[in-house]
């Protein structure tokens, strides 16, 4: 699953609250809160950077963690968000992303 691309769905509302990210699915009103590490991945999920590169650049750069363990955790995290429809996943770059990204706010 490492050569995949991820981007936020357009069917979400999201806002950074301190060092966490609050996200709500417009589809079913489920509320999510991402911790600091998950927020790093979320903010880097621009649809054009492969997930393994995101993990290297963000999680592995910020924390003393085994890269393969970090990638495994990230893949699990991504699968969970894709299951809830708040993250899109593709084996090629995703071009359609929201006009404004939460990390800009």
């Amino acid at each position: 699953m490492s050569s995949v691309y991820v981007a936020p769905s357009s069917e979400i509302a999201a806002r950074r609250l301190g060092d966490e990210m609050v996200i709500m699915s417009v589809r079913d009103s489920t509320l999510f809160s991402l911790n600091e590490v998950a927020t790093l991945i979320w903010q880097a999920a621009d649809g054009s950077t492969p997930l393994d590169e995101i993990v290297q650049r963000t999680v592995c750069a910020a924390f003393d963690v085994d890269p393969s363990v970090a990638l495994e955790d990230a893949e699990r995290f991504v699968r969970e968000l894709v299951r809830h429809g708040i993250l899109s996943l593709s084996d090629r770059p995703i071009t359609r992303v929201p006009a404004t990204r939460p990390e800009d706010l």
Partner: peptide, 12 residues
């Protein structure tokens, strides 16, 4: 206005 609000990712 609504379109802009959603582009800013508000829960509307």
């Amino acid at each position: 206005i609504l379109e802009h609000a959603r582009a800013m990712l508000f829960n509307v």
